[in-house]
Nucleic acid binder design. Structure first.
Lengths: 229, 229
DNA sequence: GCAAAAAAATGACGTTAGTCAGCTTTCTAA
DNA sequence: TTAGAAAGCTGACTAACGTCATTTTTTTGC
């Protein structure tokens, strides 16, 4: 349980920052950032922003996990990305000057800071390292998405599940994967029932171990092999 | 047939430029750009760059069309995007400082200019409008890709074909869609045989008219409806 | 700690779309 | 102009996966 009263995370001591786009900030910049941000506790399943709303700034995940998703025509979610501590979300739409094309929601209770649009754009203007970091980040994500699309188009659900579990192992670090079956299905891009059946197969094949909703990977090698890499 | 001898397209008179990232350039900038670029004639099916190679600059399409694609594990291409006159390709990987994750190849004979990495990065450094234009472009493409992924995951092949044809109507402007069945299948994300069968259905339903490989859309409304928008 | 609600699991069934094999039309280059 | 190659097309078959209906388990709030 996170401490809800501990509202002000300080950027100077934020552990996620070191692996983030803000990792190169110097003392002055950190102080400035720290005084211009707002810090918030989010409970599980709370929205950061909705598809269709307009961006007012960027979110910086201090602790927790956030799913980025898009709703298809029948209302089914497709999860595009899961962001973890140190990542920033919500800045892409800020640059397009359009409404969000995706939504963002916490997967667990989280501490998330907010930097207003003005402040962030000013930071970018005055800080070429941040600027270039963002350009690089956007470009990396584009390459990732090309991969995602190709997987969706050409791999079986079984292969995609293996691939998705490898991504999730990275997101959950050493912890067991802890997502609802529905979220998992919506990330893989399949029906919940199909996902459940495949999980059962994986379990019977000794690839994973399941405790209610928590999934522990026993055989990463097989996942790598199954996913076709 | 393009004039192969006409090797030097001048930026000042390039028609595609007005709808491109370079549309705001002033006289001096254009002159500088013009003298720093190289212009090349590409024949049909010629590669601009290969997956795995390293970027040396950006390509600016003066005339023609270029497919951007990624190869899946079994070697099958997945087309991610089709770029037309006025678009720039190849700059995304330049920012990541990694090898290309996608390949690019002309779909028809084309005139394409090349701007070296150094020159282009210098332009970006000194020109905030270009810089912001690129950030915006990257962000827009990311939103597009989220859409693409969701379509792939949730729509039937028939729906995806309708969706793809709408995109292609835009790419081919008023001309009939002119792609090989294989490229079309690789864009929709299906087997060539399935694509051919669906085209036949569309034809019988009066949605399209087919002349050998050229496809003319007769009923855009139905496509919109079919694609689920 | 219990009742209600939500999530997970299972079974039966039908459809979609992929594969393979063979045939026909169109394009290309000598 | 024509032969060979490439692209396009068709048919038969089947596996993968989605849907719907129902049951079981887990979670949640009082």
């Amino acid at each position: 349980m996170l401490d809800k009263s501990h509202k002000h995370v300080t950027c100077q001591t934020c552990t996620g920052r070191h692996s983030s786009l803000l990792n190169h900030f110097d003392t002055d910049e950190l102080a400035h950032l720290n005084s211009h941000k707002a810090c918030n506790y989010y409970k599980k399943h709370q929205a950061l922003f909705l598809e269709g709303s307009f961006p007012r700034g960027v979110f910086c995940i201090n602790q927790g996990m956030v799913k980025i998703f898009k709703r298809g025509d029948e209302g089914k979610e497709q999860i595009i990305h899961i962001a973890k501590a140190g990542e920033m979300v919500g800045f892409r739409a800020m640059f397009t000057e359009e409404a969000y094309k995706v939504g963002a929601e916490t997967l667990e209770e989280s501490n998330i800071c907010f930097i207003g649009k003005e402040d962030f754009l000013n930071l970018m203007d005055s800080n070429p390292v941040l600027r270039n970091g963002i350009i690089k980040e956007l470009s990396l994500e584009l390459a990732d998405r090309a991969d995602f699309i190709t997987n969706m188009a050409q791999k079986s659900v079984r292969e995609r599940l293996a691939f998705t579990m490898l991504i999730l192992m990275d997101v959950f670090d050493q912890e067991p994967i802890n997502l609802s079956r529905e979220d998992l299905a919506n990330f893989v891009g399949t029906a919940t029932e199909t996902l459940i059946r495949l999980l059962k197969d994986f379990k019977e094949e000794g690839i994973i171990e399941v405790q209610t909703r928590k999934i522990k990977v026993l055989d990463k090698q097989r996942l790598l092999h199954l996913s076709g890499k």
